[in-house]
Every structure is written in C-alpha cells, then in structure tokens.
C-alpha cells in the first residue's frame, strides 16, 4: 500500500510541467463552453489540447477569445496541436504559430496521412518531429502503436510518445494491447495513450498496460453526460495506475482455489 501511494503521488514530467493528474483532455466536440469547463473541473486534468484556426473562420471562432480565458480561469496548461496538418511543413509552421499564440514550447504533433482513418503519416511525422526538436520545442507526437516508430521518435528527441489505441474519435478502445505493451518496453519517455478511448475501462486498461497518462477527447466531449464521463475517466486512470503498480496476477487456463483444502471436513 505504501509503495502504491508513492507511485501514485509521483508527478508526470512533460517538458517543464509537473502534472499530478494523468488525464489529458481534448477541448473539441463539447456541446458548449460551459460543459467543457465543468468537464475540465470534474476530470481534474491540468493539461488540455487546443487547435489553431483562422480568426472569423466560422461562428465558433466568435468564442475563441473566451476559450483562452476559460482555460486560464480553469487553471489548466494549454497543449497546442497541429490537427489538420498533412505535411511536415504545415505542421512545423502551425507549431511555430502556436508557440507565438500560446507562449508555450509544448506541441502535440499531428501529421495526418489519411482522411478516413486520421492515422499519422510516419515519414512526415518523423521529419516534422526532428525539425521541431531542433527548433527548441517539447514535442509530443501522435503516433501509431508501432514500437519501432516510437523508438525512432524518441531518437530524434521527442519528449513523449502518444500512440493511438484505435482511430481518433472511433471509441474502439485499445485494438492491440500487445503492441501498446511493446511500445512501453521500447521507450522510457512518458507514454500517453492518445486516441480511440471510448469509455472508462479503455483508460484503465491503458494505464494497466504501462501508459503514464491517457488523453481523452471525444469519449468525454461526445458522451451523453460529458461531466460524469470526465469524472469516470479520472477514476479509471487512477485505478489503472494503481493496478499497474500493484502487479496483477498471471492469467491461468485452469482454476486455482483461493480457499485452502486443509481442514476440509469429511461430511459423507
């Protein structure tokens, strides 16, 4: 019990941040700014993602100024993403603009390769990561659950790796838990499950498999009750981390009695 508490209390270091909560939140997809703020509070998160878009591009941008204010009032740090970028060049420029807008060196690097799956374009991702690391960024790349690519991203200087459990927004959970376990073996930097979370058990499984944190966006924002789901995710992340530290029992094909046979009476 003593050591489990000690592990739970260790903050997660991401760049210059020391995070006590191991749940990261996406800010997209909420029905309103008020629900988003309530979900942030219920989740206990200290780091949330935001995107960068044209001023006046649509009705939502009228609320853009208040987004920055709302997040500041919530006391959370901002992690800009490069969502919507399909080339290393666009992603690098977007990250540089985000650094200018939000005064942070952190970037959640997304270089998308495919409209239908939104899975990363590995060569472009690696190229962008290398350039951004050289430019002084703390790079947190959204990647696949490929342990080799994860290692390559760390080799070019990424501060963490953020593999998808399944496609963004799919809610399909962790389709290949064995690969996620291999990624855990492959890297020592923080490992953050980034996409595919559908419900709380997915977040708990990610932590049980050795992730250092879980990123949830659609799973919370598009739940029927986002605030309640935010609380559920927070509890799941904590439970999963405790279970990982506690050390689960091995899986066995046959039963193993938990009640001893000694002293069993002869009744017939």
């Amino acid at each position: 019990m003593e050591s489990a508490i000690a592990v739970e209390d260790a903050p997660l270091a991401l760049g210059g941040l020391q995070l006590r909560s191991r749940l990261l939140l996406g800010t997209g997809g909420f029905p309103s700014m008020e629900v988003m703020a309530d979900a942030i509070a219920a989740s206990g998160t200290e780091l949330v993602t935001v995107a960068l878009r044209r001023v006046g591009s649509d009705a939502r941008s009228a609320r853009a100024g208040s987004l920055v204010q709302t997040l500041a009032a919530a006391g959370v740090a901002v992690l800009p993403n490069t969502a919507g970028c399909y080339t290393a060049r666009d992603a690098v420029l977007t990250a540089q603009l985000a650094r200018e807008a939000f005064e942070t060196d952190l970037v959640k690097l997304e270089v998308i390769g495919d409209d239908d799956t939104l899975l990363p374009d590995a060569p472009e991702l690696l190229r962008a990561a290398e350039q951004l690391v050289d430019d002084g960024f703390t790079v947190l790349p959204y990647t696949t659950d490929d342990p080799v690519l994860a290692r390559r991203l760390v080799e070019v200087g990424c501060a963490a790796v953020m593999p998808a459990g399944s496609p963004i927004g799919s809610g399909m959970g962790i389709r290949n838990p064995y690969n996620l376990a291999l990624v855990r073996e492959a890297v020592t930097v923080p490992l953050v499950l980034d996409a595919g979370v559908g419900t709380a058990s997915d977040a708990a499984l990610a932590m049980e498999l050795g992730c250092d944190a879980v990123m949830a966006a659609s799973a919370i924002a598009r739940a029927a009750d986002p605030v309640r789901m935010a609380r559920a995710m927070s509890a799941a992340v904590e439970a999963g981390r405790l279970a990982r530290a506690a050390g689960r029992i091995p899986r066995r094909l046959y039963a193993r009695a938990s009640t001893p046979n000694e002293g069993l009476p002869e009744l017939t």
């Binding site: 800010t27 909420f30 960068l52 878009r53 001023v55 853009a64 987004l67 901002v78 807008a101």
Partner: peptide
Amino acid sequence: VEVLTAMQGG
C-alpha cells in the same frame, strides 16, 4: 496573411 487563434480541438 493568416491570422489565427485558439479553437476547441482534440
């Protein structure tokens, strides 16, 4: 010229 600002996003 591109003038950009924060938008809610994953």
